[in-house]
């Protein structure tokens, strides 16, 4: 039963992304991308990655929609369509460009699939990622950091400098967006 439901989610995901790419009205594409994020959040939830699902829903469906709409309010809502004569002239060039892009995408897809071939199975308890430092965190985190939650201990203590760097990056990005979207007082 749950497998059927998962297949339907993934189908909805593909349909949403294709529709968002093909839409000419950018506001509608933004709204459809919001649906994409919601479905993606359900998939993370299904994989038991609750915190990732949270981030996906709040950032993907919430903040990204707001930011794209803010960008649209400073630019134009539709894609620009070239006039007929120019269309005829560029059609051949565009078809060639599409063909090249298709080949490049196909090659990238092949390389990515090749890269996943020697990965350990999904949920394999003997995978190297589960034994490199994870054992030490699970055994010692409570007495070393004195925090109940391992994830919090890893993020805030063992990888504290990493988290500090990430916070700096996000702070800088927020400042840049505020500067870009600021309205001049006249």
């Amino acid at each position: 039963m749950i497998n059927v439901i998962e297949i339907i989610y993934l189908f909805i995901l593909v349909v949403c992304s294709v529709a968002a790419v093909r839409m000419k009205d950018l506001l509608s594409a933004t709204v459809v991308l919001g649906a994409y994020s919601l479905i993606m959040a359900i998939i993370w939830m299904d994989l038991n990655a609750v915190d990732v699902a949270f981030t996906e829903a709040s950032v993907g469906a919430g903040i990204t929609t707001v930011l794209i709409i803010a960008a649209l309010s400073r630019t134009k809502r539709g894609e620009s369509v070239p006039d007929v004569g120019e269309q005829r002239r560029t059609r051949k060039a565009r078809r060639f460009k599409k063909f090249v892009l298709f080949i490049v995408t196909l090659c990238t897809f092949g390389v990515l699939v090749y890269g996943t071939m020697d990965l350990p199975d999904f949920g394999d308890p003997d995978a190297p990622a589960r034994h490199h430092v994870a054992d030490r965190y699970i055994e010692k985190a409570h007495e070393e950091v004195n925090v109940e939650n391992f994830v919090t201990a890893v993020l805030a203590s063992y990888r504290g400098y990493d988290t500090l760097g990430e916070t700096t990056v996000i702070f800088t990005a927020g400042l840049a967006i505020m500067v870009l979207l600021r309205r001049e007082k006249s």
Partner: peptide, 15 residues
């Protein structure tokens, strides 16, 4: 959140 932002954009043209 997204709905509120969308409606505000449609009403006033800016956020």
């Amino acid at each position: 959140i997204g709905t509120i932002a969308f409606l505000k954009y449609r009403e006033t043209g800016r956020l």
